[in-house]
Simulated assay, not measured.
Amino acid sequence: MRLLSPDLRARLLANGEAGHAARRDGRREPDPSPVVKFFNPVGAATWLATELDPDGDTLFGLADLGFGCPELGSFSLSELASVRLPFGLGIERDLYFEGRLPISIYAETARRTGSIMQAIGLLHSLPHGPAS
């Protein structure tokens, strides 16, 4: 499976440019919703990406390798694509994931629960988003 469709790539690049422009202009950085979710189909690793740098490889978002300490940071699209897992599998894109909230909410909740997947389950079960 190709990890990024042209539409997802364009959305990630637009978010990246908005973040770079805000930093350049001294404005508050945007807090976009995740555009795409990647996951290990035979393990606990999960990534939520919000931005793609102009290099076409460096993603920014929330990463959870399954050790109970999800964190915001950069990760490589080509490295995700190169992972070879048992049974001939690789890292996959969740075709049905829809980021409903800003990445900061996912990050805060994932840190509290210890995993992105638990955070998604909790946040997406709330009828009107998280309580203030």
Rank of each mutant, 00 (worst) to 15 (best):
F60I: 11
A131L: 15
T58F: 01
S33W: 08
R112F: 11
E92I: 06
V42W: 12
R11H: 06
A18C: 04
R93G: 08
R100Y: 04
S132F: 00
L4D: 01
G114C: 00
L48K: 03
L65K: 08
L52I: 00
L59Q: 12
G43E: 11
D31W: 02
S82V: 11
R11N: 00
E92C: 08
P6L: 04
I91R: 06
S104V: 04
G121H: 07
L89S: 05
L80V: 06
E108S: 15
P30T: 01
A44W: 14
F75V: 01
L85T: 06
L62S: 09
A49S: 09
R84T: 11
A10F: 05
R9W: 00
A18I: 02
L77H: 09
H124K: 01
T58V: 04
P86Y: 10
S104E: 02
R111T: 14
D25E: 08
G26F: 13
S125Y: 15
M1S: 12
R24G: 12
R2D: 15
L62N: 08
G66Q: 04
R28Y: 02
D25Y: 10
P102W: 15
A110C: 08
S125H: 15
F60W: 15
S125D: 10
L8A: 06
A21E: 13
S115I: 10
S76P: 09
T58L: 08
P127C: 04
P41Q: 00
V36E: 06
A45K: 07
L85C: 10
P34N: 03
F75P: 01
C69Y: 14
P127H: 12
L126G: 07
L123S: 09
R28I: 14
G99W: 03
P32N: 05
G90A: 12
L72Y: 14
L3E: 00
G114H: 00
L62Y: 11
R23Y: 02
E51Q: 11
T50G: 02
I120Q: 04
F97R: 09
S104W: 00
T113A: 12
I103S: 08
H20C: 13
P86M: 07
L3F: 14
G129E: 10
L72G: 13
G56T: 09
T46D: 06
L122Y: 07
L4Q: 01
A107G: 02
S115M: 10
I116A: 07
G73P: 14
G114Q: 05
L48F: 06
